[in-house]
Every structure is written in C-alpha cells, then in structure tokens.
Design a protein around this nucleic acid. Structure first.
Lengths: 202, 202
DNA sequence: GTCTATAATAGGATAGAC
DNA sequence: GTCTATCCTATTATAGAC
C-alpha cells in the first residue's frame, strides 16, 4: 500500500486555501483534487462524507487554530492594548491584509451550512468569546465586551466581503485600523463618555 | 406567440430572492427555473448570457433600488438623524431583520465576481456614497463621513454573514442598533471627544 | 493510500416546435 | 415568450486494481 503523500493536516490546509479562494459552493471535488494533487478517491478516503465532511474537518482545524494561535496572542505577554494590537496584526496577516477571503465566512454563506452548523457555531462563538475575554480583562463590563467582540468579527467578515467585491484590500485594512481604535475605547460604541483623546493608545 | 407570464422586473425580483437564499454559486439554472416558474429556455431568452447575465441585471435592479428607495429616504424630510433612523429601518426591513442574506454580498463572494465587477463596484460605491452624503450633511467632515459610511456597509454585510452562519438574526439586529448610535457620533470611530451623552438622539 | 475507470446525476446551454 | 427535448460537459461518488 502506497505511503501517504502528505499528512492529513497538510491536505486540510490546502482545502482551507481552496475554499477561501473559490468559496464552498464554488469549489468542486475536481478543483479540490487538483489543488491537493490527490485523486478523487484519495480525497474520499480522507473525507468519506464528501464536501460536507471536508468543511467539517476544515472547521475543526480553524477551531484548533483559534484556540492555539489566536488565544495565545490574546492571553500572552503585555498589556491588553498590546495584545490586541498583536492580535489584529495576526488577523491581518492571516487574511493577507485583505486580499484573501475567510473560509469561515464562505461556509456561513454556503448552501450546506446547516449540515455543519454545530462546528460553525462553535468556531464563531469561540472567536467572539476570545476577543470578548480580552476586552473584559481590559476593564470593559462583560456585556459591552461581548457586544464589541461580536462587532469585531462582524467588521472583519464584512470588510472581507467588501474587499472581495471591490477587488481592493483597502477596505479591509481600514477596518482593521478602526478596530485598533474602537475596541478598547472607554465608551460603548455609540456612547461618548470622555473628553478629547487622540486615537493613539497610552 | 405566447404572452409573457410575468414582467422582466418580476423575474428579476425572483432571481434576487433566489440568489440571496442559495447564493450565486449555490443557485443552479434549474433552481432558478423552478423559482421563477419559467423553463430554462425562457430564462435564456431574458438572460442570453446565463447566470452572469442574470447577476448583472440583478445588480442593475439593486442599483435602481438604492438610487430610488434608499436615496429617497436618506434625502427626504426631517433631520439627518431622523432620516438615518428611517434608513436603518428600511435596511432592516429589506433583510427581514436579519433572516435574509444580501444578494450583493453573495455576488461579492462568487467565483464569477470579476465578470460583473463594474456593476458590483458601482452598487457598492453608490451605497457607501449615499450614506456618506447624509453623514456629511449632518456635519461630519467629508473624510470621516466616507469612512463611517464604508464602516456601515461593512457592518451590515458582516452581520448578515454572522447571522447566516449562526442561523440567528440577533447579531444583525444588534449591528443595526449599533449603527444607529455610532454613525452620527461626534467623534471619529475610535476617538472620543465629548462628554457623557446617552445613546438616544435629540 | 493512491490510482484509473466508470457510473449516475446534475449542470449549463441550445434547437426547434408552437 | 414559452415549452419539451436534447446535447455535452462537469460533477459527485464509487469500484476495484495496485
């Protein structure tokens, strides 16, 4: 029996890249076969459930990435402000500064989304929760922290949609910049509670 | 020769609904045929260029809708604040308060998006421009008005992605609420310049 | 674990009758 | 303008050899 040409993790990494480029509905088995360099049968060996199975395992990989990389950055050394800045840089890097789409966003919009609803839910809630925890640690009341964390993910997803549609990464880059100034502001989004502060953190 | 069963506008309206439900890549000609009640050949009569043609004409319809309905609301009677509130209500209604996706967002993420890049660009820029014009009229400096208008569209798109992924309209509803308090705030998003104001407009 | 081959279906698009 | 019938390709998925 032939040895594996690549690890399953490597296969999944290529699936992520292909799904984020073509979308879930836009990527066919043939596309994914070419991208991975594996024949269709090899793909079905790894993912007996076909595309739904692939999406499920892709989501598990994203879940693991968030729980390691992103959480590590959010809970690492330095002030909350510094950690937030590093997290935004990590996120920006992850999306190639706005020129690559989000696999999670594509899965959210896919026809089959209900078939992997649970892991999709989990990824989104983990992501929002991780950012929310940092904001709370930074002193924001829980309710506000959670709301702003949701807003952060909303803006990242929306900015990627806009940048994708315009074929221009600038909207994404502006959104990341805005998050750097908005998330740790001392007032609820929309409420203004303190006098003139420049946008630079302390 | 048989008479038209429905006007082209009616056909396009059904295409919009089908694309927003299944996505552009997720909707097949057969799907669209069933949804409209027209045979494939009838669809190709209206849209000789197939799905790309459909998307182009759908975008033209959205363009017309924004230039009439949305602009009418944004430039109608009342204070900028009142008009913004009415516009957000209009938008919320349009997305069925978060339970229906955005056809423009789906087109932004589609594989064929470059084939209707121009009308897609135009719709997005018109949309952002219309909101920006109101914010400017309300007294915001042009640069800030344009940035916040972009942020508004970003947040609407992102919230629809999130609500779609979670199967829960609540994130969208919260995003609309946040826009009601954020867009006309007297400081740049992220800057805080005035003391304690409640979120209710004057 | 990987491949080629193949089945069965769904997809996009067209022809031609009415 | 609409339909049925059809074409051809692509697609999903499986079978079976190695």
């Amino acid at each position: 029996m032939p040895r594996a040409l690549m690890s399953k993790d490597e296969v999944i990494a290529i699936l992520v890249e292909t799904f984020r480029r073509d979308g879930y509905d836009g990527a066919s088995i043939a596309t994914l076969s070419k991208a991975t360099g594996l024949g269709k049968s090899s793909l079905y060996h790894y993912f007996p459930g076909g595309k739904v199975d692939m999406a499920t395992q892709v989501l598990a990989a994203v879940q693991a990435w968030i729980e390691s990389q992103m959480v590590a950055t959010l809970t690492g050394a330095g002030t909350p402000r510094a950690r937030l800045t590093r997290t935004l840089a990590l996120i920006s890097e992850f999306y190639d500064h706005g020129s690559k789409a989000c696999v999670v966003g594509h899965l959210c919009a896919s026809v089959d989304r209900r078939q992997f609803q649970k892991p999709l839910d989990r990824v989104l809630r983990t992501w929002i929760g991780a950012i929310g925890a940092l904001l709370e640690e930074a002193g924001l009341p829980q309710r506000l922290a959670r709301e702003r964390a949701e807003d952060a993910v909303v803006r990242i997803q929306g900015a990627l949609v806009l940048s994708g549609g315009l074929g221009d990464p600038a909207p994404f880059q502006r959104a990341i910049k805005r998050l750097g100034t908005d998330l740790l502001g001392d007032a609820p989004a929309g409420d203004r509670t303190r006098p003139g502060r420049a946008r630079r953190p302390a």
